[in-house]
């Protein structure tokens, strides 16, 4: 999904599977706050991915990892 607006979930991670490193928040939803609206409070998660999952065969070293903060509405159980 690529909505044409202010999104804090990087495109390179969309559709990828990771695991929760820790839970953070709640924080206001930037997709509302960016437009002068009061942001709904959302749980933010630090999600860890392997480079193999993110980049496939192009991974520099598959076992290295990448952590990013992702708001709850961009996550689904895997």
């Amino acid at each position: 999904m690529m909505p044409p607006g202010h999104i804090r979930t990087p495109a390179y991670l969309r559709g990828k599977t990771g695991w929760i490193e820790r839970q953070l928040g709640p924080f206001g939803n930037p997709e509302q706050q960016a437009y002068g609206l009061l942001g709904d409070k959302l749980t933010l998660y630090r999600v860890r991915f392997t480079m193999a999952e993110v980049w496939g065969d192009q991974a520099e070293r598959p076992e290295d990892t990448l952590d990013a903060e992702i708001y709850e509405h961009w996550l689904e159980p895997a």
Partner: peptide, 14 residues
């Protein structure tokens, strides 16, 4: 090679 790299992308509030 034996050391794992952890990249942290500061995407949100931390």
């Amino acid at each position: 090679d034996g050391v794992q790299i952890r990249v942290h992308d500061s995407t949100a509030d931390m």
